[in-house]
Design a protein around this nucleic acid. Structure first.
Lengths: 155, 155
DNA sequence: GCTCTTTTGACTAATCTTGACCATTATTTT
DNA sequence: AAAATAATGGTCAAGATTAGTCAAAAGAGC
């Protein structure tokens, strides 16, 4: 299990310093220095691992005193978060993004492991594969939004 | 039985390092090197010997820090029910029939009420509506069969 | 020989790493 | 003020590093 990429390690570090707090603020260059990578790698880590699909909101500011703030959010609890999630889905969503969302729901205890797994198979490429990849993503978006609405209004 | 192919040997090795653990993570190129075969042979071994029918789930990631993860799962004993349902579904199923099947699963205690509801959402006309009704029924069949296959095991 | 399985490798796809160049904000100088 | 400079973070594309696919060639079992 020591096959982790440096991006994985940075991800773990950021999640660790986030801990139980609602948010954490970092300096890009500091983290980059700490792990001896170029600064833009921090952007890569954030862009691939701290998305709204993963349950995170990220804000930043440039210039002197600049920062990157990572905030952990609950997908269904907050109307604004749910709205931006649904907006991010739009009318088309790739398998990867859909999977991230379901995993986030599971980690937030919104769904059980088994429920999450059932959602995953319905959203999988395997189940939805149709000649046209565009239509596949559209179908996936409709199913996923249906799931979200169902979960939202049920309990 | 003395004529073991290299694939058999690799299979045995993977099962050995899996041991009692729930899962194991390998690097394709490492194993390939270790047994002096081309990397794609590892894919062959996995595809032919670590299938879900045999009780294994496989996940992988490419790129730096990439891996192949093999996980062992417990197969359940509702297999007969599931098999006959899958047979009955074939490659096309109408909404009404799909709903009946989900209700059966619920009544047979194969799924919880909530799990059944989530399945219904994904099988609904609303979620799957496509211009072509024939394709819609085929999609529904694939999703429903995927559900049933997922219910074969627990992880 | 014929068929099924195994082995191989060329080509493809996904993910990670790096660096050059760009944009924004704060601070200092004029 | 306005302009220059410093101090941040952002974007994007090329290259590196994995794994996946597919079909042809080779081998094994009848």
């Amino acid at each position: 299990m020591e096959n982790k990429s440096i991006s994985d390690i940075i991800e773990a570090y950021l999640k660790e310093i986030l801990g139980d707090s609602a948010q954490v603020e970092i300096r890009r260059s500091e983290i980059a220095n700490q792990f001896d990578v170029v600064p833009s790698q921090i952007n890569y880590v954030i862009k691939t691992r701290f998305t709204i699909q993963n349950g995170y909101l990220v804000k930043s500011k440039r210039g002197g005193g600049g920062y990157i703030r990572i905030e952990r959010v609950n997908l269904l609890d907050d109307v604004n978060v749910l709205n931006s999630l649904i907006q991010a889905i739009g009318d088309s969503v790739r398998e990867r993004d859909a999977f991230d969302i379901v995993r986030t729901l599971y980690e937030e205890d919104v769904v059980t492991r088994r429920e999450g797994d059932l959602m995953l198979v319905a959203l999988s490429k395997q189940a939805l594969a149709v000649n046209d990849g565009k239509i596949e993503d559209q179908l996936r978006a409709r199913i996923l939004v249906s799931f979200l609405n169902r979960l939202r209004y049920e309990s």
